[in-house]
Design a protein around this nucleic acid. Structure first.
Length: 879
RNA sequence: GGGCAAUUAGCUCAGUUGGUUAGAGCGCUUCGUUCACAUCGAAGAGGUCGUAGGUUCGAAUCCUACAUUGCCCACCA
C-alpha cells in the first residue's frame, strides 16, 4: 500500500494532466500491442478508417468509444486483442480539400499537372493526416498504434492491384460505355450509392414536338428541358391509341430541328405525363436503355464541368442551369411551351460536395457484383455472420439481392490508379505493373504502354481493409492469427458502402467472412434531430468536450445517452452526466484513499459484517450484469448498471454506512475490494480515471488493461440479506427523512423514533440496523416494542405488515396536514387492494395464472389489508 | 411506390421472453455547505404509456388498422 498523501489530492477530478500521463504510459508499456505469436485466445477488430482529412466529430467519439470498450474488456478477459487502426485516403474528399487550399494560392490542379498535384496531396497528408489519429489517441482508443495503416500504403496498394487483376482475369471487372452519375463539381463519375436523392420542387414543362410530314403535334413533358438538345428519339407505348400510328415516323426536335425516330416500347407508361417520352440516351438512365434497345444514336451535350458543349449549338458554354432557362425562354417565344406545372421530384446530389448530379454516358470501369454477392448473402443467411440489432439483416439482404454493378472508376487524380495498361495496338490488360503487363500482352521489354488515366473508387481499397491491413496477399502471421476478425462496429450509413462490400471481398479473397458480429449504431445528431454539419454550425466538438469534461467524461456521457440502435441526440448539457460521474468516482476514491488504514492485508478479511456482505452481494450482481450486458453489446445498459451500483449503492449507502467503522479491518478491506472491483468494471468505459485511481490506491503503475476482469463469485450473493437491508434499513431511513422534510425539522435536530413490531424476530431485525438508522436519519430510536400504540405527538412514517415506525414530532406539528397525508395514502392502498381482491376473486385468474403469480397476489393483498388497517387505526388516533 | 424505426413525466430516454402500485438522468419545487464530493446531499411534485379496435384471467409489452415524425431503398420521364 503506497501512501496516498491525501492532502495533495484535489477536490475535483482534473482530467488534463492525468490523461496525458496515461497516454504516454500505455504507449511505453506496449499494452495495446498484439503479438501474433503469443498464446491464448484471440480477439480482433479493425477500426472503420476515418478519412485522412477528418477531424474528430461526435460520430467518431461514439464509434470508437464503443470499440474501445470492447477492446479493453476483452483484453481484461484474457484475450490477445488486436484493434487495427488506420486512415482512409478518401479520394474525392481529400482531393477536394487540397484543391480548395490550392485555390487560395490561385492554383488549379491542371496548372500543376498530375504528378505534381499528387505530390501536393501527399505533402498535405504528411502534414495534416495525423490529426485524426492524435485525436483518437486523446479519446483513449487502445488501438495497436504501431500497426497504423493507410489505404494508400504500398502494402495496401499492392492488395488493391492484386484484387483488380484477379477480378479482371475472372471477367468480373470490365470496361463499358454506360450512363453513370456524374458530379460536375468533382468532375468524376460516382457509384449509385454515392448519390443522395432529395425531393426538390421543380417544374414539369410540356413541350410541343412537330411530327414530320404531318400536321400532328406531340406534346412531351419533361423536368429537364435543356436535355432536349441531346434528344435522339421519341418514345410511346406501342398500344397507346393516341400515338401508335406514329411509331416509325419522325418527330422534329424544337430549336435544333433534328429528326427523331418515334419508337414504341412497353416500358413507357401511357398514364404518366402526356404518355410520350423524349429520349436522351446520353443523359438519362431510362433513355439510355431505350436508346440501346432501339439503336438510337447518343448525343452527349455536356462537358465534364456540366457546361454545355458544341452539340448544344447556340447554348454552348452555358451552365446547365442557365441553359435550362434559355431553352425555356426560347420555347416560349416559339410558342412551343404548352404549359409549365409545378412538380416535386427526386434530384440526385453528390455525397461529397452536394452538387446536383447529372446522368452522363461515358466510358467507365465496373465490377460485376452478382457472383460476389452470393457467398456474402449465404454467410448472413446461415447465421455465420450476425447483425446487432438484427433488423439490419433485412436491409443488408435487400440490397445484396438487388445488387447492381459497381462503377469503380473515378476521373480524379488522388487514389489508386487503375492498373490497366494498353499497348500501341490497342490491346489492354490488367497487371501488377508495366513489366507484368508486357508479359501478359506478349510485348517486348521496351514496348510502349499507356496506363489508364482514372483512379479507383476509395471504397475499392476500403473493402479489403480487414485483410489488406494484415499483410494480404502474403501469408502473414497476422492473417494467420487475427483473421477473421470478431466484431465490426459501425454506423448504418455505411452498410452498403463498406460493410456489404467487405463481406463480399472477405468471402471472395479469403474464403471466409471478415467478421462474425456486425454491431450497428446510430448517427449522432443535434438536439433538434438534424445531422451535425459544419455548415449548419450545430456541431459539438468532442475535443472541446474533452477539454471541459475529460475524455472519460465524454466517453461515459456519449455511451449513456446512446440507446441501442437509435440515433443519438447529443448536446453538451447531456454529456455532463459523464463529467459528474467521473467526479463522483474520484471523490469516492478520494474518501477511500484518505481513510483506508495503511498496511491493510491484501486478502479479503473473513466474516465481514452485514453492511459488508450487503455491498458484496450488490457488487456480485453488478459484476454479473455488466459482464453479460457487455457480451450482448448492450453498452448503455452496462454503463447504467455501473452508474447505479457505484453512485446509488456504493456511494449513497455503503460508504455512508462504513464511515464510523472505517478503522475496522473488515470494513476497510471491503471498501477497498469493492472499489477496486468497480474500477475494473469501469475501466473499459473510463480508462484514464480508473488507471489513475488504481495507481494511487495500489501503487501499481500498470494499466488495469493488464488486470483480470472481475470474476463472478455467486457465493457473495445473499438475497435474503438484501431484502432485510432494504426493509429494515433503507426504507426506514427514507421514511424518517421524509417526515423530517415534510415537517421541516432542521438538519441539526435529532428526532425520536419508535417502532411497533409484531414479533421478536422483527424487533431483532430492526435492532440490527437501528444504529445506522439513527445516524443516517439523524434519529434516536427510543423503543422497539411489540404492539406499541402510537406514541403521543408522533406520526406514522412507515407501515408494513410486521411493523409500524413512528416519528416523534414537536408540539408544533400540523395534525391536519398529517391526517390528509395519511388519508391520501390510505385511499391509494384501498384502491389498490380492491384491484387485487377483484383479481383474486376471478376464477379464470386463479385457474390460468402461474401459481407463483397467484401466491404473490395473495401476499400483496394481505400486506395491503394489514397496512390499510394500521393506517386507519392511526388516522383515528390522530383525530 | 416499397421497407425500417420512433411515439412512455416539461426534455432525452429505460422498461429483457405479457404478471412492479410504470422507472432513470436532466429540468422544476423545498431544504441543506464541520463531516469524500455543491460537478454534491436529502425530500418532493410531475405520466389516462400516440389513437381506435382485438387476443388474454391479465397488455406500456402481443395482433390489426389509423395518425404523426424521422430515415433508407426505388429509372415514373
Amino acid at each position: 500500500m503506497s501512501d496516498p498523501r491525501p492532502k495533495e489530492l484535489p477536490k475535483a477530478y482534473d482530467p488534463a494532466s492525468v490523461e496525458k500521463k496515461w497516454l504516454e504510459r500505455w504507449e511505453a508499456d506496449g499494452v495495446f500491442h498484439a503479438d501474433p505469436a503469443g498464446t491464448g485466445p484471440v480477439f480482433s477488430m479493425v477500426i472503420p478508417p476515418p478519412n485522412v482529412t477528418g477531424i474528430l466529430h461526435m460520430g467518431h467519439a461514439l464509434n470508437d468509444t464503443l470499440q474501445d470498450i470492447i477492446a479493453r474488456s476483452k483484453r481484461m478477459q484474457g484475450y490477445r486483442v488486436l484493434w487495427m487502426p488506420g486512415t482512409d485516403h478518401a479520394g474525392i474528399a481529400t482531393q477536394n480539400v487540397v484543391e480548395k487550399s490550392l485555390a487560395k494560392e490561385k492554383i488549379r490542379r491542371e496548372d500543376l499537372g498530375r504528378v505534381a498535384f499528387v505530390e501536393r496531396v501527399w505533402k498535405w497528408r504528411d502534414e495534416y493526416g495525423g490529426t485524426i489519429v492524435e485525436q483518437l489517441r486523446r479519446l483513449g482508443c487502445s488501438c495497436d498504434w504501431k500497426r497504423l495503416r493507410f489505404t494508400m500504403d504500398e502494402g495496401l496498394s499492392r492488395a488493391v492491384r492484386e484484387v483488380f487483376v484477379r477480378l479482371f482475369d475472372r471477367g468480373l471487372v470490365y470496361r463499358s460505355h454506360y450512363i453513370v452519375n456524374w458530379c460536375p463539381r468533382c468532375e468524376t463519375a460516382l457509384a449509385d450509392e454515392e448519390v443522395n436523392h432529395r425531393d426538390l420542387d421543380g417544374a414539369f414543362y410540356h413541350i410541343v414536338y412537330a411530327v414530320e410530314g404531318s400536321e400532328e403535334k406531340l406534346v412531351i413533358a419533361t423536368t429537364r428541358p435543356e436535355t432536349l438538345l441531346g434528344d435522339t428519339g421519341v418514345g410511346v407505348h406501342p398500344e397507346d391509341e393516341r400515338y401508335r400510328h406514329l411509331v416509325g415516323k419522325h418527330a422534329i426536335l424544337p430549336i435544333l430541328g433534328r429528326k427523331l425516330l418515334i419508337i414504341g416500347d412497353p416500358a413507357i407508361d401511357p398514364a404518366f405525363g402526356t404518355g410520350a417520352l423524349k429520349i436522351t440516351p446520353a443523359h438519362d438512365p431510362v433513355d439510355f436503355e431505350l436508346g440501346r434497345k432501339h439503336h438510337l444514336p447518343s448525343v452527349n451535350i455536356m462537358e465534364k464541368n456540366g457546361n454545355l458543349n458544341a452539340e448544344a449549338g447556340p447554348y454552348r458554354g452555358l451552365s446547365r442551369f442557365e441553359a435550362r432557362k434559355r431553352v425555356v425562354e426560347r420555347l416560349q417565344a416559339d410558342g412551343l411551351l404548352v404549359k409549365t406545372e409545378p412538380h416535386r421530384h427526386a434530384v440526385g446530389h453528390c455525397y461529397r460536395c452536394d452538387e446536383v448530379v447529372e446522368p452522363r454516358a461515358s466510358e467507365q470501369w465496373f465490377v460485376k457484383m452478382k457472383p460476389l454477392a452470393e457467398p456474402a448473402i449465404r454467410a448472413v443467411e446461415s447465421g455465420e455472420v450476425r447483425f446487432f440489432p438484427n433488423r439490419w439483416t433485412k436491409v443488408y439482404m435487400e440490397w445484396m439481392t438487388n445488387i447492381r454493378d459497381w462503377c469503380i472508376s473515378r476521373q480524379i487524380w488522388w487514389g489508386h490508379r487503375i492498373p490497366v495498361y494498353t499497348a500501341s495496338d490497342g490491346r489492354y490488360t490488367a497487371a501488377h505493373d508495366e513489366a507484368d503487363a508486357r508479359r501478359r500482352l506478349g510485348l517486348e521489354e521496351s514496348a510502349p504502354l499507356r496506363q489508364d488515366e482514372d483512379v479507383l473508387d476509395t471504397w475499392f481499397s476500403s473493402w479489403l481493409w480487414p485483410f489488406s491491413t494484415m499483410g494480404w496477399p502474403d501469408a502473414s502471421p497476422e492473417l494467420e492469427a487475427f483473421y477473421p476478425t470478431k466484431t465490426l462496429v459501425t454506423g448504418y450509413e455505411i452498410i452498403f458502402f463498406w460493410v456489404a462490400r467487405m463481406m463480399m471481398a472477405g468471402c471472395e479473397f479469403m474464403k471466409q467472412p471478415p467478421f462474425s458480429d456486425i454491431y450497428i449504431h446510430g448517427i449522432v445528431r443535434d438536439p433538434t434531430g438534424a445531422k451535425m454539419s459544419k455548415s449548419k454550425g450545430n456541431v459539438i466538438d468532442p475535443l472541446s468536450v474533452i477539454d471541459r469534461f475529460g475524455a472519460d467524461g465524454l466517453r461515459f456521457g456519449i455511451i449513456s445517452i446512446t440507446s441501442e440502435g437509435q440515433d443519438v441526440y447529443a448536446s453538451e448539457d447531456r454529456l455532463e452526466i459523464g463529467r459528474n460521474f467521473a467526479n463522483k468516482i474520484w471523490n469516492a476514491s478520494r474518501f477511500a484513499m484518505m481513510n483506508l488504514p495503511p498496511n491493510l492485508p491484501e486478502e479479503m478479511p473473513p466474516a465481514p459484517g452485514p453492511h459488508e456482505r450487503w455491498i458484496l452481494s450488490r457488487l456480485e450482481d453488478a459484476v454479473q450484469k455488466t459482464t453479460s450486458l457487455l457480451d450482448a453489446y448492450h453498452f448503455n445498459e452496462a454503463a447504467g448498471r455501473l452508474y447505479d451500483f457505484f453512485w446509488g449503492e456504493f456511494c449513497d449507502w455503503y460508504i455512508e454506512l462504513a464511515k464510523p467503522q472505517i478503522t475496522r479491518t473488515d470494513v476497510a478491506g471491503t471498501l477497498r475490494t469493492v472499489l477496486e472491483t468497480a474500477l475494473k468494471l469501469l475501466h473499459p468505459f473510463m480508462p484514464f480515471l480508473t488507471d489513475e485511481i488504481h495507481s494511487i490506491l495500489t501503487g501499481s503503475q500498470r494499466s488495469l488493461d493488464c488486470a483480470a476482469w472481475p470474476r463472478s463469485l455467486p457465493g457473495r450473493r445473499d438475497e435474503a440479506l438484501e431484502n432485510r437491508v432494504s426493509r429494515f434499513l433503507i426504507e426506514p431511513v427514507g421514511a424518517v427523512r421524509n417526515k423530517r422534510a415534510v415537517h421541516r425539522i432542521g438538519a441539526k435536530e435529532t428526532v425520536q423514533v419508535s417502532v411497533s413490531v409484531t414479533t421478536d424476530g422483527v424487533a431483532e431485525a430492526f435492532g440490527e440496523f437501528s444504529a445506522d438508522l439513527e445516524r443516517l436519519a439523524r434519529a434516536r430510536v427510543a423503543c422497539i416494542q411489540k404492539g406499541l400504540p402510537r406514541p403521543p405527538k408522533s406520526v406514522l412514517a412507515l407501515v408494513t405488515p410486521e411493523a409500524e415506525l413512528f416519528v416523534h414530532l414537536p408540539e408544533s406539528m400540523d395534525l391536519e396536514q398529517e391526517r390528509e397525508r395519511l388519508a391520501a395514502e390510505a385511499a391509494q392502498i384501498q384502491k389498490y387492494l380492491h384491484s387485487v381482491q377483484a383479481k383474486l376473486k376471478n376464477e379464470k385468474f386463479i385457474n390460468n395464472a402461474p401459481e407463483a403469480v397467484v401466491r404473490e397476489e395473495r401476499r400483496k393483498a394481505e400486506e395491503s389489508r394489514v397496512k390499510l388497517e394500521r393506517l386507519n387505526e392511526n388516522l383515528r388516533s390522530l383525530a
